[in-house]
Computed example of a mutant assay.
Amino acid sequence: MSYLPLVGLPADTYESHGFLYHSIGDKYVRAVAEAALCTPVMIPSMIDALEIDALLDHFDGILVTGAVSNVHPPHYGETPSAAYEPYDHARDATTLKLIERVIARGMPLFCICRGFQELNVVMGGTLETELQDIEGRLDHRAPVHDDVDVRYAPSHAINIRPGGMLEKMLGKRETMVNSIHRQGIKRLAPGLAVEATAPDGIIEAVSVRDAKTFAFGTQWHPEFKALHNPDSMKLFSAFGEAVRAYARKRSAPAKQIA
């Protein structure tokens, strides 16, 4: 293949001085470029101006990032609250539709943190917010610290499901992960399989049942300094291989019907 396949990353939005901006954290695009060995391309969160299927025709995989914002509760049947803010309605409108179409197409999909939660919502699951206030739950928020290495340091173990997709990628049944979230899966979507859980039972990784290719999500952040984390490298390498396989299939000449 003479080119690096394209991976789309839907953007967050924020307002400043009366203008709306679209953005993606460097750690995500860097992980796609340096760990998955693909070309990252931002997808603006402007569903009113995008034709999703025409857009996806140009991509070989999609990575849905984490974010400061939470998924708006009405998308999973709950009442919005100021305690659950901030929200990003433009992102919700774009990513929820995008994930649905990516799965239907059988494209490689990697969902991280907020993206992991969006995947569960798209597939019919629900979320719970402010985990640190719920009896029996760990505080899954990052420590308050100026040093990002401290905020993103491994903070708890996960138990990996025997025989699952994650065990096959990592080759083990337990590892340490970082934890930087307030929201988690409450009711697992019927189309998802649990791949790993935290000590308090919070779901930390899922795969899409009967997926045609790599369709996987993590609640933690494997993109952070991915090149220096063997687990992260295995995840992004598997995603990159799936993206390249999809690109080869997409570019192969169609068989002529006799």
Rank of each mutant, 00 (worst) to 15 (best):
L109E: 09
G66K: 06
M42G: 05
I112A: 03
H17S: 14
P40A: 11
K27Q: 11
E100K: 14
R141D: 07
A11Q: 10
V177T: 07
I203N: 02
T39N: 08
L37H: 07
T39S: 08
V68L: 15
V144A: 14
G164F: 00
A31P: 03
A35P: 13
N178A: 10
R248V: 01
A198S: 14
F216G: 02
D57K: 12
Y152A: 04
R250E: 12
S69T: 15
H156E: 06
V150R: 06
E15G: 10
S207E: 00
F19Q: 12
R151S: 02
Q132G: 13
R151I: 08
Q183S: 15
E241K: 15
L20Q: 15
H22P: 09
V102Y: 05
S81V: 15
D53S: 09
H22W: 04
F239R: 01
I202W: 03
I203V: 15
E223L: 05
G8M: 06
V7Y: 00
P154E: 03
H75M: 02
R161L: 01
L6G: 05
L56Y: 10
G125P: 00
D60I: 09
W220Y: 06
D147G: 08
M165W: 01
V194H: 00
T129R: 13
A104H: 11
F59E: 02
P222E: 04
I185M: 10
A157K: 12
G18C: 08
T94D: 10
E118V: 02
S179H: 09
T218G: 00
A67N: 00
P222C: 04
G217T: 03
W220C: 08
H75Y: 14
F116A: 13
H221E: 08
G115E: 08
V68N: 11
K97T: 07
P253R: 14
A142E: 12
L98N: 04
G124T: 10
C38G: 05
E100W: 02
L56I: 07
G136Y: 10
P253Y: 12
I180Y: 13
R209I: 06
A11I: 09
H17W: 08
N159W: 11
M123E: 09
I24V: 14
P199T: 10
G18P: 10
E78L: 12
S81C: 15
R182S: 14
A153W: 03
A83Q: 15
L96H: 13
D48M: 06
R30S: 10
N120D: 00
N120E: 00
T79Q: 15
K249S: 10
H228I: 07
E241T: 14
V64K: 05
V32I: 08
D210E: 11
G61K: 03
Y28S: 01
V102T: 07
P222Y: 01
E204R: 10
D133R: 14
Y246F: 13
G61Y: 02
D48I: 06
A67Q: 01
E128W: 11
A31N: 01
R209P: 10
D60Y: 09
E15N: 12
M123D: 01
Y14L: 15
L227C: 10
V206Q: 07
A252P: 06
M165S: 03
I112Y: 00
P73M: 03
V32K: 03
I202L: 11
M169E: 02
